[in-house]
């Protein structure tokens, strides 16, 4: 036996990941309701959240992300209002929790040290996002020059190409 071997403990039930999905989903549902969006939230968002908790490795979490983004965009004009700032980490948490729950049966066990790198990475991504939010808040509002818009679209296209290139399976 190697001395650096990993001793297997009991861990916590994998259903805890589904609980995290439900909690994040509940918060995602509550925010649009606070803004007065009732029909879209209850008839589109809530079923998608429940479906995501039941089947995390399905298109349901994507539907949650898209629907909540559209609902929030339609609800108000201020892009940096509190509801949006709260929703950014919530949607990310929902996405990560669904990704982890998708690789593990609901009857499995989760060992918390396995989530350490995921938690650090979550914080890193949120720090980068917060920096971009601060940058957006500092930029002047008003009409954007067409050249800047074209450059933005070209940059986004470049990012997408880089992502696709990096994520190709070797």
């Amino acid at each position: 036996m190697r001395p650096d071997a990993l001793e297997l403990g009991r861990g916590v039930p994998a259903a805890l990941l589904r609980v995290v999905i439900l909690l994040a989903g509940a918060a995602i549902v509550v925010v649009p309701l606070q803004e007065g969006i009732t029909i879209g939230t209850l008839f589109l968002l809530l079923p998608a959240v429940l479906a995501s908790a039941y089947a995390p490795a399905s298109p349901a979490p994507a539907a949650v992300i898209v629907v909540v983004a559209v609902l929030l965009a339609l609800a108000g004009e201020d892009p940096l209002r509190a509801e949006v700032l709260v929703m950014i980490p919530l949607v990310h948490l929902f996405h990560v929790a669904c990704g982890l729950a998708g690789v593990l049966p609901a009857s499995g066990r989760v060992h918390l040290r396995a989530l350490r790198s995921t938690a650090l990475r979550f914080l890193l991504v949120q720090a980068v996002t917060a920096a971009v939010v601060v940058l957006v808040a500092l930029l002047p509002t008003g009409r954007t020059h067409p050249v800047v818009e074209v450059l933005g679209l070209a940059g986004l296209a470049g990012v997408v190409l880089v992502v696709v290139w990096r994520q190709r399976v070797k």
């Binding site: 990560v96 990012v159 990096r166 994520q167």
Partner: peptide, 22 residues
């Protein structure tokens, strides 16, 4: 669409992808 909130909500997902190595 000039909706910054949409871009901000999609940003963490893209950043996560950029940080991931295949």
């Amino acid at each position: 669409m000039h909706r910054v909130e949409l871009a901000l909500m999609g940003l963490p997902l893209v950043v996560g992808l950029l940080l991931t190595k295949t």
